[in-house]
């Protein structure tokens, strides 16, 4: 699958209006064949296809204004019939949701983001070493690491099945009293410690690429920091009298003028 993105038509241009699709979903397209038209400031531009294949999906409809680099469509390369179609199906499912956020310029190319996080989330139950789903507190991680405990073997009793300190301690105690399974593999804790905290926190954290505008803002901020002299000035003022006056006038109607 090749992503078709809203191109940048100039340095100052951060978005464009998709005015017309020259192909329909399912149509065959050749590389460099005009695929859609965009409009920016009295200029209509034909955008050629980045690849040859079948136009699999249109994600941005005509008349919508989207930020540059937003994925507007997907092209299935080669287009060799049913086999490719079937493979495309699962990918289409997570991609089905993004169109709404994709319409906002703030979220360029979100469809490409979900799969990577979704993929590692699936295997953990079977493979040892990876963190169990759900957030883990640093305390639990530390405890598990120090005692070489595989957290996948512990059933959490905390909020939402979260593993608590008590759960880990209980598990360790149980292991000590019945050392039947000396299973905990050595590499497991090591792997767990390497995993960044974000991997477990799939609930609230969302990673998305910066928009061009944000990149430019960041660049300018760094530049101004590097090229301007930075000075800190400290002024000392005796506010005693002012404070006293404010306190004195608080209950009266004059108060409104002093914003107290």
């Amino acid at each position: 699958m090749t992503d078709v993105v809203m191109p940048q038509m100039g340095e100052s241009i951060v978005e464009g209006t998709l005015t017309k699709w020259l192909k329909k979903a399912g149509d065959r397209v050749e590389r460099d064949e005009p695929l859609f038209e965009i409009s920016t400031d009295k200029v209509d531009t034909e955008i050629p296809s980045p690849a040859a294949g079948t136009l699999a999906e249109i994600l941005v409809e005509e008349g919508k204004t989207v930020g540059i680099n937003t994925v507007v469509a997907k092209i299935e390369e080669g287009g060799n019939g049913a086999g490719a179609k079937a493979a495309a199906k699962p990918a289409a499912a997570p991609a089905a949701a993004p169109p709404a956020p994709a319409a906002k310029p703030a979220a360029p190319a979100p469809p490409s983001a979900p799969p990577p996080t979704a993929a590692p989330a699936a295997p953990p139950p079977s493979s040892e070493g990876a963190d169990p789903a759900g957030p883990l507190s640093p305390l639990v991680r530390k405890l598990a690491r120090e005692n070489s405990v595989d957290l996948n073997r512990i059933t959490g009793t905390g909020a939402g099945g979260r593993i608590t300190k008590q759960d880990v301690e209980g598990y360790i105690a149980a292991q000590k009293s019945a050392p039947a399974a000396p299973a905990p593999a050595k590499p497991a804790p090591a792997a767990a410690s390497v995993t960044p905290p974000a991997a477990g926190g799939q609930a609230k954290t969302r990673v998305e690429p910066m928009s061009t505008m944000r990149i430019k803002i960041a660049e300018h901020m760094i530049m101004s920091q590097a090229t301007s002299a930075h000075v800190t000035t400290v002024h000392r003022a005796d506010m005693t009298k002012v404070a006293r006056m404010r306190a004195r006038n608080k209950p009266s109607r004059v108060c409104g003028r002093f914003r107290c």
Binding site: M9, G10, E11, S12, I13, T40, D41, K42, V43, T45
Partner: peptide, 9 residues
Amino acid sequence: WQRDVAAYV
């Protein structure tokens, strides 16, 4: 010239 439609206009 310049790959910039705004600059062109």
